[in-house]
Amino acid sequence: MAVSTQVSLVPPFTRESATAKVRRAEDGWNTRDPETVSLAYTVDSRWRNRSEFVNGREAIVAFLTRKWSRELEYRLIKELWAFDGARIAVRFAYECHDAQGQWWRSYGNENWEFDEQGLMKARYACINDLAITEAERLFHWPIGRRPDDHPELSDLGL
């Protein structure tokens, strides 16, 4: 699904703009570039990620740098769950492996809130991890943006 440049990605969201916002976030995270990803958040953005609390862009960059130094070959799919006004709820799954070669699929839900410029000011993530074998992997595209023709979470039965 290519994101149209004609869709306004600021609140209040429509189904089309919320879906585009989710894909834009997925694309950003799949770059695994903490500095670039941090620019989608307000300078004072507040996060809860699992049991960790992250506040502000500098802390987001530090968090993502740590995350992607241990979550190797990271690939993520996000899917719109619900939206209203300036809020979007998503479900997601990502696959990666650790330094020992153990593959993981992590499942979760995120609740997002945006400011008037479309920057995320709050992110609350709940995540569960499942050890998988390499043969159980479902996300095989080259590192980077998920191809438009790759199945989404619902298509994969996740």
Rank of each mutant, 00 (worst) to 15 (best):
A2H: 14
S4W: 05
T5F: 14
T5E: 15
Q6F: 13
V7I: 13
S8I: 08
S8W: 07
S8E: 09
P11T: 03
P12R: 01
R15T: 15
R15K: 15
S17K: 00
S17T: 05
A18L: 08
A20D: 11
A20H: 05
K21A: 14
R23D: 10
A25L: 14
A25K: 12
D27F: 10
N30A: 01
N30Q: 00
T31D: 03
R32G: 02
D33A: 03
D33L: 04
D33V: 04
P34E: 03
E35Q: 11
E35T: 09
V37Q: 03
S38C: 00
S38T: 02
A40I: 06
Y41P: 00
T42R: 00
T42P: 00
V43E: 14
S45C: 10
R46H: 08
R46M: 08
R48M: 08
R48K: 13
R48G: 06
N49Q: 07
S51C: 12
E52N: 13
E52G: 09
N55A: 15
N55G: 15
G56L: 02
R57Y: 02
E58N: 13
E58S: 13
A59F: 06
A62D: 11
T65Y: 04
T65G: 05
R66N: 12
K67M: 12
W68Q: 03
R70H: 11
R70A: 13
R70W: 12
E71L: 02
E73N: 08
L76F: 09
L76A: 03
F83G: 02
F83D: 04
G85V: 04
G85M: 04
A86K: 05
A86H: 09
R87V: 10
R87K: 15
I88Y: 02
A89Q: 09
A89F: 05
A89L: 10
A89T: 13
V90E: 08
R91M: 10
F92Y: 07
Y94N: 09
E95D: 01
D98T: 04
A99N: 15
A99G: 14
A99P: 14
Q100W: 15
Q100Y: 14
Q102C: 11
Q102D: 11
Q102A: 09
Q102N: 13
W104N: 01
W104V: 04
G108H: 00
E110C: 05
N111T: 14
W112H: 11
F114W: 04
D115S: 04
E116P: 08
E116N: 10
Q117D: 15
Q117W: 11
M120P: 05
M120H: 08
A122G: 09
A122I: 03
A122T: 07
R123M: 07
Y124G: 04
A125F: 02
C126M: 12
N128Q: 12
D129G: 07
L130R: 11
I132W: 00
A135D: 06
A135P: 00
E136T: 05
R137N: 01
L138C: 09
F139N: 02
H140S: 06
P142Y: 05
I143H: 10
G144A: 02
R145E: 12
R145V: 14
R145D: 13
R146S: 06
P147R: 01
P147S: 03
D148T: 11
D148Q: 11
D149V: 06
P151H: 03
E152T: 15
S154E: 14
S154K: 14
D155L: 07
G157Q: 02
G157M: 03
L158G: 05
L158N: 07
